[in-house]
Design a protein around this nucleic acid. Structure first.
Lengths: 212, 212
DNA sequence: TGCCAAAGTGAGTGACGCTAACATATGTAA
DNA sequence: TTACATATGTTAGCGTCACTCACTTTGGCA
């Protein structure tokens, strides 16, 4: 199940790579990611991905149970990148600063802008998604980044109920903004928004509001 | 193109109904809505919808150009209902009250909860969506409901820039909350949220924050 | 060296999206 | 009423896709 990383892995316990093809599993995930990005989350086919990887249309089923499992692989990889981007953002400003909070949101929004197809896939996966505790865990991991930034900013422990509440508000807001941003690209009167100013204003509004 | 309303329409310019079948167009849209709701946005097929309506698998193409156009029909109908729900909500509280704002958001969230499949479809439509100015217009119409409630609450004209900004913040927040709510149904620590209290708190936070 | 399991192939099945050619009902006009 | 144009429906068929099965090839290892 795990490990879609190195093509030239050492012959350890689960190498899963470099037999005939090289590393088909990872190459398929890459192909699918590109397809999802260019043709939308629905405009992908296992056959086309196999074609791009230069293998027969039956080969993918040696690595994935069905098409949903491939998508889950793409989502898993994408969530890793999303989290990394959020953490990298947070680290580029002083711990506890409002900018650190806003920049986590900016990483989120920019991910959505850069890879709208994948972003939609990540949060649009429904079928076969239920039995995927690893994805849920990664989702909570991303949320955790927000919580930590908020906690540092409010100088409260991450487990604090008010911290969680405000972090969730911020996440909802950023999540919604990302989607709206993607959907009506050049539309909606208010869509021409300076993301950074917007995120700073939003963070300030939510973090300084009196406790509800 | 328009008109999926009355089966027994008068023989006007574009009756489009009650020939052989009765009113296949509307019946197909209903069938697709049900399929989308039960099997997810992807788990729908034109064939299955035709089967449910009791016609051959080629019949739908007399009413819709392709599968995407059927989906657009479903989305269009859903957006009408969504807007109606938002307006009905707003009308159930005094104009200008904070509750009126919060209740618009609640209508939104409850629509998402009641019809998660359709909700996802509405905001997940990508292919063939570009050339659909009517859907974009309906989207702006829904946003307009939020703007009006916010404007009344702040006692400012709907065109005011600050009103638009705050309305957009609120919409993002509610939109994001709706999605997160659907996605991790029973998950994420903070997901057990009293929607009403949450929406009231959020509305207050955003409407009373100092201008940014 | 011989064996097993992993990794890949090719052919086949059933479903689907969509089109083409044909059949039938309906409103309008001669 | 009859004749026609058009809207609506049907059957048959094409190409694609997801997925399976039987088979071959390859590499690691006892």
């Amino acid at each position: 199940m795990p490990d879609e990383t190195q093509p030239s892995a050492s012959p350890g316990v689960t190498p899963k790579a470099a037999y005939h093809h090289g590393d088909l599993r990872a190459q398929l995930i890459t192909a699918v990611r590109e397809l999802v990005e260019t043709h939308g989350p629905d405009g992908f086919s296992v056959s086309e991905a196999a074609r791009r990887a230069g293998v027969s249309s039956a080969a993918p089923y040696k690595h994935f149970k069905d098409r949903h499992e491939i998508l889950r692989g793409v989502v898993s990889e994408a969530m890793d990148r999303l989290r990394a981007a959020m953490e990298a953002g947070a680290a580029s400003y002083p711990v506890g600063s409002l900018e650190a909070v806003a920049t986590v949101g900016r990483a989120y929004v920019e991910f959505a802008k850069a890879e709208p197809g994948v972003f939609r896939l990540v949060f649009g996966l429904t079928e076969g998604h239920e039995n995927a505790p690893d994805l849920l865990a990664k989702g909570e991991g991303c949320f955790g980044v927000v919580v930590q930034a908020v906690a540092a900013c409010l100088d409260l422990p991450p487990g604090d109920r008010d911290v969680q509440r405000r972090a969730y508000m911020l996440w909802s807001l950023v999540h919604g903004h990302s989607f709206l941003n993607i959907d009506m690209k050049t539309k909606v009167t208010t869509a021409e928004i300076d993301d950074w100013a917007y995120l700073m204003a939003v963070s300030r509004a939510i973090l300084t509001a009196p406790e509800g």
